[in-house]
Design a protein around this nucleic acid. Structure first.
Lengths: 222, 222
DNA sequence: GGGCACGTAGTACCGCGGTACTACGCGGCA
DNA sequence: TGCCGCGTAGTACCGCGGTACTACGTGCCC
């Protein structure tokens, strides 16, 4: 039995989903919300397995609501729905931590299958969107492991050296690394030098690039 | 009517797929192949809408075969199948240009729905794999457009400055940039200085990070 | 006990990178 | 006509980064 919270600003739309979900035995609608803020509050209160979330809503939109629900850390999964297959929505929803993204014109059985997948911890993407997602994925995600036969050095780095490389990847200067790691700058230089030699980088800039290419450095932190 | 080429080294497996696909009116099996090389040849010859590709095969594996089929530029789409949900396979298959990735334990209707999606130009990913794919996607794909409200400076960069930033993002030294752009090193320094000021970076390292975070620099080129 | 990997630390040297400031030609616009 | 943005170029200065080399303590394994 999967508990579902329906979030949509249009009462008629909510009604339609409610009817659909009640028509099958495996899902039960435990609540409805008309906007983002209410969605966040009711999710915390009702702890549904799945939150069926519309993107476009007045006030707090579905993306922001998703972000907050995911950040709250409960076990509720968010399945985002939209009428338009705009890339920005998909992109933002994924970054917000959504477990799925479907179009509202999906067939009923697709929606139910999606809810089922999301409830069981998997994720779903509408086929019409998957194409572009994969293209972007292939463009950006580095070809670490199994693809590039020999990552020169990565494996030969010691734990400490890998830590240093990550720090370099964050753009920290030797002095900053020394301070944060509580080391002398000399030591940092020694480490950095060894890292550069091992990964075959001529300077820390190429080390930063190496770190990004191998997934050691990531956007959005620091 | 969707034409399908079945690629699998195990005759019994091929037989199973053949039976399944022949049991519905919308698909017709136009051929079979037992290994990668045969798959590439028969795809070129039979021009199927969809190639049902096993990953694990003796000789040329499914990934390499996929790469060649996609590279050939025909209109055949490749739907990769595997028994194991190893990340490396998914990763490699996507990079090879596959239009879909399903597990062999998928229910028949899932497989047929997948073939349908792929034939119509969309893509599919098994729900069990989508979760990890999305996580990785969110990790790596930059938050360009619509996500970060104010890219400080990116828009204020002139065309030339953006070129310079991309070059910096590749890890090139000022001297190298000067050579490749046929400029004096002084000019390059002037440009780099202005770029740093505009994007709010204190040195070229943070400019590299900025470039990666904003999708100006990407893995796998140079 | 001796060797070895690793993390730590130091000194000395040099060059690239970054800053500050000036300068000029070109095209567009008021 | 003059101003301004842009791309180009130069000089001077300084500091961080990188290299080379040495050194020592600790833990591990033969």
């Amino acid at each position: 039995m999967t508990t579902v919270l329906i979030v949509d600003d249009q009462p008629l739309q909510r009604y339609g989903f409610h009817l659909l979900l009640d028509s099958v035995p495996e899902t039960v609608v435990v609540g409805e919300a008309a906007h983002g803020a209410e969605a966040v509050r009711k999710t915390a209160e009702l702890r549904p397995d799945v939150v069926l979330m519309d993107v476009r809503m007045p006030g707090m939109d579905g993306i922001e609501a998703t972000r907050r629900i995911v950040a709250a850390g409960g076990r509720s999964r968010v399945l985002v729905l939209t009428t338009f297959d705009l890339d920005e929505y998909v992109h933002a929803a994924i970054r917000a931590g959504a477990s799925g993204f479907l179009l509202k014109d999906a067939r009923p059985e697709e929606l139910l299958a999606g809810i089922r997948s999301v409830a069981s911890g998997d994720a779903v993407i509408a086929p019409a969107l998957t194409r572009r997602l994969l293209d972007e994925y292939a463009r950006y995600v580095p070809a670490h492991r199994a693809d590039s036969p020999e990552d020169p050095g990565l494996g030969s780095l010691t734990d400490r050296e890998r830590e240093i490389l990550v720090a370099v990847g964050k753009g920290w200067t030797n002095g900053e690394i020394a301070t944060r790691f509580v080391l002398s700058e000399s030591t940092v230089k020694t480490h950095v030098g060894r890292v550069l030699a091992k990964i075959g980088a001529r300077d820390r800039i190429q080390a930063v690039i190496f770190a990004y290419d191998h997934g050691l450095a990531r956007p959005n932190e620091d």
